[in-house]
Write a protein that binds this DNA or RNA. Structure first.
Length: 274
DNA sequence: ATGGCCGGAGAATCCGGA
């Protein structure tokens, strides 16, 4: 079975390219991030015509996550247990007891069971800047996900946590780490939050099969980043113990960054034995 | 070749991205 994660940066703009990729790659399950649309705007019919069921969670033009599967799609969840919401005032000042406000959960996670694997499509908050409320939110979000993931692993579930993690785990996962001094994605707390999935028993499958340095999954649209190969490695697949042993290969489809109409991220592919 | 931001909203730029 072939699982793929891809931040498509607008599904409506990219749908032809995504469907062409699904056909060419013979992908069974696609975890999509940054669909940038509401559920009623998602091009579901086009996916169904290609033989895929789709579950999408999108609230506005921001974020948006989906799973497309041709091997079944059951028990859809639009957030993980204790997933924090984001509300700037609450994070800065604490909850207001007079308002009893609950921060709204953003469209950054969707889970479904596909071909016996619990697949999660995840769009980890960017963080914006060190010390920004969004950075605090990012760390809390990752910690809550790790807590949930630990429970799933303890239950013996076959889980794939796939998506845009917005963390650069190693200095060699970026073209020049000094360009990120004092910025998000490389800070110690972010890297610790990412590495905690390993401590929880999960295996990052792309690292297993693609251990080379300076392998990237994202290149900025600006300043000729792709032709100059100034990229980042930020898209990953953490596999639970029950799943990791089934992995047979991983690949990054760098060619998908070429040409007009490319997303700034490329597909990250994981193959499992049946 | 892989090329000098892009997408969405909505009417002028502005937000968010990393």
């Amino acid at each position: 079975m072939r699982l793929v994660t891809w931040n498509v940066n607008s599904i409506r703009t990219r749908v032809d390219r995504v469907l062409a990729f699904l056909d060419r790659s013979q992908t069974d399950v696609l975890a999509i991030q940054e669909t940038k649309c509401r559920d009623d705007q998602f091009p579901t019919a086009a996916f169904e015509a290609a033989g895929y069921e789709v579950a999408h969670f999108g609230l506005s033009q921001w974020n948006g996550v989906a799973i497309a599967s041709r091997v079944g799609l059951d028990d859809v969840a639009t957030h993980f247990p204790e997933q924090p919401g984001f509300a700037k005032a609450i994070i800065e000042d604490g909850p207001d007891p007079l308002l009893d406000v609950v921060p709204p959960i953003e469209a950054r996670a969707i889970g479904a069971t596909c071909g016996g694997v619990r697949v999660w499509s995840l769009y980890v908050p960017h963080g914006r800047a060190l010390g920004d409320p969004h950075y605090t939110y990012k760390l809390a979000w990752l910690e809550a996900l790790r807590t949930a993931a630990q429970t799933w692993a303890a239950d013996g579930d076959a889980v794939a946590l796939m998506g845009d993690w917005n963390v650069i785990p190693l200095d060699t996962d970026v073209y020049d780490v000094t360009a990120f001094e004092g910025k998000t994605h490389v800070s110690l707390p972010e890297r610790a939050a990412f590495d905690a999935f390993g401590a929880a028993g999960y295996t990052e499958l792309t690292r297993t099969f693609l251990p080379d340095e300076h392998i990237y999954t994202y290149w900025d649209y600006q300043q000729l980043a792709f032709p100059r190969n100034k990229g980042l490695r930020i898209d990953f697949c953490w596999a639970s113990p029950a799943l990791a042993g089934r992995a047979s290969a991983a690949a990054i489809d760098r060619d998908e960054r070429k040409g007009k109409g490319a997303s700034d991220h490329v597909p990250v592919i994981v193959d499992l034995t049946d």
